[in-house]
Design a binder for these strands. Structure first.
Lengths: 228, 228
DNA sequence: GTTGGCATACCGACCGGTATGTCAGAAACC
DNA sequence: GGTTTCTGACATACCGGTCGGTATGCCAAC
């Protein structure tokens, strides 16, 4: 999934972050921080976070080591900030999309189909097709990091499950499904399909695969409920 | 995807009764080589290949650095051997399963459903649930390796696509589908679902998710063709 | 309105640890 | 005695992280 641009939000685990939000330091500071995060995000997706060297990231960001360690206590803290930022973006995207879907229709089945459609639109509106999920990138290196990162990723995925499965259950109650199904499983299929599509699209060098799979998932929902 | 057990992966023991394919220099030699490959495979899945240190692998394998560099020219060659071995296993699994499915039924739709079922059986027969796909692990680090590795992974995935899409097309011709569909896309959904399920199952710490998604994929096929 | 104090932001040489890779040769087996 | 297999000290390079120092802006005191 792609990170929605979070804008200038400085975040650290310490209470100093509060000062960032309220006092608005020199603008240059958060700029540097954001630049580092953005470049590090790309490097983590293409090389894996562990293998991405600070020097490589900082060179590309045009930032020195001193500047980096002024903003981050360690490389581990960078990982934390990276995942946190990404998770926040994903959750925000979910909220936005479900809110719009709920405005556009009262029917839970239509809402699910709208969520898929709006997500599809979102992909179109991004300039380039997204090239991976940061969670997946970390998940194949998890032994190197704390369980906290995994937790953040899990919470994000569970939020999508919750949103979709609730509507699917309501849809089944209202319309009756063609065959019985487990709402959680069908909801999880969304995340599963996305994560898998990133991997397969990259391996086959076929960026269009992502949208194809997304639409096939929509087909699945429609077939489950006998909608055209 | 899961590595098909390649058979004689004698790990620690000195089981020399097993006959290796063709080339076999000295038994002890291939034993060491296979041990290294097996351990490296596990490390690559849990830490990412780039971040997995030779020392860690070799310590666990009970092998010295000299022994390693006797068998592999470099760490890069280890990556190559690892991916090649994995790809070979996957292709072999595909062949076995399709051959069995084709024996069990002449109907292409039934064959597809059988392939899914046999794959499910295969998962059951593995002792532990598989914990990832080596291709996926490498795919999020691809900038570090040659395009050759990606190619090998791609060929494997395309083989699965080819096998499934051919049968799906034949099934559509014979039975007519409930709604039109692209056989390649539906075939790719198998790989996509698997790859995604690995990522999500690991992130949510929910190994059962893999089988759930597999069965949901089977549901999709059945719904496409109006069976049951 | 100049001065001095202080905080933020940043610089970059340097350090210790660890990674991959080398090599001369020993051990085992034909 | 030649080949295969393995040993382990060593070379070298790079990585994360440290640290003393600089630049700039703000503010209060004089």
């Amino acid at each position: 999934m792609l990170l929605a641009d979070l804008g200038p939000l400085a975040v650290t685990g310490t209470d100093r972050s509060v000062c960032y939000l309220e006092r608005m330091p020199t603008r240059k500071g958060t700029d540097t921080r954001d630049t580092i995060l953005a470049i590090a995000h790309r490097h983590a997706l293409r090389q894996g976070f562990a293998a991405a060297s600070l020097e490589g990231i900082l060179t590309e960001a045009g930032v020195t080591k001193g500047a980096f360690f002024h903003h981050f206590k360690s490389k581990g803290e960078l990982a934390h900030a990276l995942v946190e930022r990404y998770a926040r973006g994903e959750l925000q995207l979910l909220e936005e999309i479900t809110a719009r879907a709920e405005k556009l229709s009262r029917d839970p089945l239509q809402q699910v189909l709208l969520i898929i459609g709006l997500f599809d639109e979102f992909l179109d509106n991004q300039g380039a097709p997204p090239d991976g999920c940061l969670f997946a990138s970390f998940c194949y290196q998890d032994e190197l990091f704390s369980d906290e990162l995994r937790q953040m990723a899990a919470e994000t995925m569970l939020a999508w499950r919750k949103a979709l499965s609730g509507k699917l259950r309501a849809a089944a109650d209202r319309h009756g499904a063609r065959v019985p199904f487990n709402p959680d499983t069908v909801a999880d299929m969304f995340t599963t399909m996305l994560e898998g599509a990133f991997v397969v699209a990259r391996t086959l060098n076929a960026p269009h695969l992502l949208k194809e799979q997304l639409l096939e998932y929509r087909n699945h929902i429609e077939l489950l409920f006998d909608r055209e």
